[in-house]
Design a binder for these strands. Structure first.
Length: 619
DNA sequence: CAGACTATGACTACGGCT
DNA sequence: AGCCGTAGTCATAGTCTG
């Protein structure tokens, strides 16, 4: 990193649009990745990874927070492929380092690598300073540990190590060995996390969760809360493994080499702009804008992240900090279509020479839904719809409105107008008859969001699910405007990793822009949505390869390495993580970024980091 | 049992006012 | 600055129904 920033700005770093893929077009382009293809795939990756020391393994350990020098040493001692032994060695080093009584031993171990730390060794700050030395500007260091890295196969080994530390913390040993769950609990408690939080984490993450996943959850939850200026910071963990220490540091302060960003000093929080036009929209006069991307963002691939703009306080600060301190671009889709959709986008795409999808979609209700014009009362002054959500107004409500209006021959009195208008705004009701309002039909929502008609129709999909899938989707014209800069960059086609792809808003946007979809790896939990995307893919006669993956947790380092190796990397990592726990409409579980679904944001970061790391190593 | 239907506020931001 | 009213928000859980 670093050096690729050019003088004139920011966004002109060079990207290799390699065509490696053309040489290995042995994949069935029209159908899903078959089992046979999967096998071929695996063997290809296996061959590549066995050709030398596992760079991914090195990356994983470094990403987990272990110093490069230690990882190299451990790999040298144990062989570059024996993950168990390497891990044990590293954990031993870490335990020595984090235990004050054994600190001297740890220093001795590190003496050769970090002689400059010798003088700092006697104070707690010395340990911090020593750890600080382990955080340099190498991007790979900042990579999250891969989730399968501590898979259940490794849990036993880790637990073995932990049982040693148990005795140090004074926890009574019993004749029966503690269960796996208890061991995890004890280890995390020993790291300093409050027992209550550990319990919650174990409940949320499930009984099969690994220690790494639990630590991830706890770190994320603490940081998300710490980002809330009104939140009182809980007692800090007394001890950290190297991994947790590093991870926490990253969460608190992503890049020490740049402008210092700590959560506890007076810093201007991200504020939503009054006019949500981001770096410009095609339909409004915009002052010329330029931006300087942080160095960490000037590394391939391009990334594009989206979520609701009106998230709880502090959420966008956290999102921005995790995405290399890139400033979010807040845009309301009301500048692109007839419905509002206030969203934040964090991306490292150029912002010059954008172009909108043509023809420009209708931007008023009357133009978008001309049949409503006949019935629209003059006192309903709405020109735009509010945000299209996942739920619709009830029939009972529209009936109440009809009855309220029928009592009056001419215009209803003001208080009735206000009642009706409030409900119409809240539920996006439109006029479909005399005194008759109704929620939008699914196909109208499709049109407003920029999808082809019937995009979500048929194939065993219920009407309720159509609303839900559409409500959770991109506004295609808005996203396409931002992605339009890719058109000239990838005339031969683009290779994208689409996380939380939903009904394929990103894919539809690129397709409508005329960017050939050479490779799409789409990760989407909902089978209904995967079917919608695949159906669209086949109907539009796509020539590229579509791989669908159900769960982002399946996107491990190994899997990513396979995919990157086979496809020659990704040009774009795009996705909007779940907003369930951020959206204002949620009255039940608006828990912020640590919420059950919205915490998947950290998986977006994890995957993006891994992609950057793996692609960086392969160059 | 899947799908349709319904009731269920809190949290922000902002403008006007004192 | 503080108060108050207005406005908007990629939703969830329980119930009903065929």
């Amino acid at each position: 990193m670093g050096g690729s920033a050019s003088d004139n700005g920011s966004d002109s770093f060079s990207w290799s649009s390699d065509d490696e893929l053309d040489n290995k077009k042995t994949f069935d382009s029209s159908s899903a990745f078959t089992a046979a293809n999967e096998e071929a795939f695996a063997s290809t990756a296996e061959a590549s990874s066995s050709s030398g020391p596992s760079s991914a393994l090195f990356c994983h350990f470094v990403g987990a927070g272990f110093p490069e020098s230690l990882v190299a040493k451990a790999m040298e001692e144990n062989g570059s492929e024996d993950m168990d032994s390497i891990l044990n060695t590293l954990l031993t080093y870490s335990a020595l380092e984090s235990s004050p009584s054994d600190k001297q031993n740890a220093e001795n171990l590190h003496e050769n690598e970090h002689p400059e730390n010798e003088r700092n060794g006697d104070s707690p700050q010395g340990i911090d300073a020593a750890l600080d030395q382990n955080i340099d500007t190498d991007f790979c260091r900042k990579t999250d540990v891969d989730s399968d890295f501590w898979s259940s196969d490794y849990d036993e080994n880790i637990a073995d190590d932990f049982s040693d530390s148990d005795s140090c913390t004074g926890i009574e040993e019993t004749s029966t060995p503690p269960s796996d769950k208890d061991q995890k609990f004890i280890f995390l408690a020993d790291m300093g996390y409050p027992a209550e939080e550990v319990s919650i984490a174990m409940e949320r993450c499930g009984p099969d969760s690994t220690v790494e996943e639990l630590a991830d959850f706890l770190c994320a939850a603490q940081v998300a809360r710490a980002a809330d200026p009104y939140y009182v910071d809980p007692p800090k963990p007394k001890l950290y493994s190297n991994y947790a220490k590093h991870k926490r540091r990253r969460m608190l302060e992503y890049d020490k080499t740049k402008k210092p960003r700590t959560l506890f000093e007076d810093e201007e929080p991200i504020r939503l702009p009054k006019q949500m036009i981001g770096f410009g929209v095609p339909t409004e006069p915009c002052p010329p804008v330029s931006r300087m991307l942080p160095d960490a963002a000037l590394v391939p691939p391009y990334f594009y992240y989206e979520n609701v703009a009106l998230a709880p306080k502090g959420v966008w600060d956290t999102i921005s900090r995790f995405l290399y301190d890139v400033e979010p671009e807040f845009v309301d889709s009301k500048y692109f279509c007839a419905a509002a959709r206030k969203r934040g986008y964090v991306h490292n795409l150029p912002i010059e020479n954008r172009s909108p999808l043509l023809p420009l979609p209708p931007r008023s209700i009357h133009d978008a839904l001309p049949l409503t014009k006949k019935w629209w009362p003059h006192w309903d002054t709405r020109k735009k719809l509010n945000c299209l959500q996942t739920a619709i107004g009830s029939a009972r409500l529209t009936e109440r409105i009809r009855k309220a209006l029928e009592q009056w021959d001419g215009d209803p009195p003001l208080h009735v107008q206000k009642y009706v208008l409030d409900e119409c705004r809240k539920w996006n009701l439109v006029w479909v008859g005399r005194n008759k309002v109704a929620p939008l039909e699914p196909d109208e929502v499709e049109m407003l969001l920029g999808f082809p008609r019937n995009h979500t129709r048929g194939g065993g999909i219920s009407r309720t699910d159509r609303y839900k899938s559409l409500g959770n989707s991109f506004q295609v014209d808005t996203v396409a405007y931002h992605l339009s800069v890719l058109k000239d960059m990838f005339p031969g086609g683009i290779k994208i990793l689409s996380l939380f792809s939903g009904i394929g808003g990103a894919e539809v946007a690129l397709h409508r822009l005329g960017v050939p979809l050479k490779v799409v790896v789409a990760v989407e939990i909902s089978e209904v949505n995967r079917n919608i995307l695949r159906s669209w893919w086949e109907q539009t006669n796509q020539k590229g390869i579509l791989v669908d993956i159900a769960d982002v947790q399946q996107l491990t380092g190994d899997r990513l390495e396979q995919l990157i190796s086979s496809f020659g990397g990704f040009d774009l990592v795009i996705g909007g993580s779940p907003c369930n726990n951020l959206a204002g409409s949620n009255r039940v579980s608006r828990d912020g970024l640590e919420g059950k679904e919205s915490a998947l944001f950290f998986d977006y970061c994890r995957v993006l980091d891994l992609v950057k790391c793996i692609m960086g190593k392969k160059q």
